[in-house]
Write a protein that binds this DNA or RNA. Structure first.
Length: 280
DNA sequence: TGCCAGGCCAAAT
DNA sequence: ATTTGGCATGGC
């Protein structure tokens, strides 16, 4: 489809494109005119929103609906949302934010590059890796996220030159494991969450937090709760008891239930945007 | 300048 | 079983 062709229109009852693309799930969305361009694997997708109308690249409507998770039952998720003041404020300010369905390798790899990095810098690393190792995509400024094979051919120094620091060794080792077909990320989708998390944690550079990001963002485990520094501060303020990150994760699962991952994403984005925490 | 960032890991207790 | 220190880099 030519990008100059008239976009297709999709009616969306409950959706916020900007917050969905800028809430630290993906790190490559490029502002383009009134909308954004993203790559879904190797497919360039232009998306813009005007109130309840979404305009997407003609011919890619169903790809867009799937990637943007327009089928997620937000009304049910909101009906089960916690009722404390901070959570209500997060819901009000983030309403319409959706958890994307990300390509699995891209999600795993980008979150291996994420520890002790700010969102803006993860984006910078991600764009560097695409430019340096990824396949160019016709009619797109962006290159595809490098495949495991493309990264497996790099050296640790190549990756350090993209700003990865100590994460270079982990990303390289994981890329080589996946490229060897010793593990099939697609096949893992059938595994139960606990077993899948344990398997993800076997990759170098993947601990519980990164594994939970991958579970939530690439394996549709909407109850998975990544506990980073922001979420830890928020949950500590809510719980008011000295707790490890694992205890906070369990607390979140008990308290927020089957959509705890969704709640977590709203709390994370709201806290970051407003630089605020729950009152204690 | 000094502090912090969507942590992980191995060593020490 | 739980805590601690080291690890690279860039933005504010």
């Amino acid at each position: 489809m030519s990008p100059s062709q008239k976009p297709a229109e999709i009616f969306v009852p409950e959706f916020d494109l900007r917050q969905t693309l800028e809430s630290g799930q993906i790190f490559h969305a490029m502002p383009t005119g009134p909308g954004w361009q993203v790559l879904v694997d190797r497919t360039p997708l232009y998306v813009e929103q005007q109130d309840r109308v979404l305009r997407v690249t003609a011919g890619h409507e169903s790809l867009a609906q799937n990637y943007l998770s327009l089928d997620h039952p937000l009304e049910s998720i909101y009906a089960a949302f916690p009722s404390d003041p901070f959570s209500r404020a997060a819901l009000q300010s983030c309403r319409g934010l959706r958890i994307l369905r990300q390509p699995r390798w891209e999600c795993l790899a980008t979150f291996i590059t994420s520890p002790m990095k700010q969102v803006a810098h993860i984006r910078q690393i991600s764009l560097h890796l695409r430019e340096r190792f990824g396949t160019p995509v016709e009619s797109s400024l962006l290159h595809a996220y490098p495949t495991p094979e493309q990264l497996a051919g790099a050296t640790e120094q190549d990756l350090r030159n993209c700003g990865l620091g100590f994460r270079a060794k982990s990303l390289l080792a994981t890329a080589r494991t996946v490229a060897s077909q010793e593990v099939d990320l697609a096949a893992l989708a059938q595994w139960p969450t606990g077993k899948l998390r344990d398997r993800l944690c076997e990759f170098p550079g993947v601990g519980r937090k990164v594994a939970n990001c991958v579970l939530l963002f690439a394996y549709e485990r909407l109850d998975a709760v990544p506990v980073d520094v922001w979420i830890a501060r928020i949950l500590l303020a809510m719980r008011r008891r000295k707790s490890s990150h694992l205890e906070l994760e369990r607390y979140s699962n008990r308290r927020f239930g089957a959509y705890a991952g969704y709640v977590q994403q709203y709390l994370f984005h709201h806290a970051r945007m407003t630089k605020s925490l729950p009152a204690t």
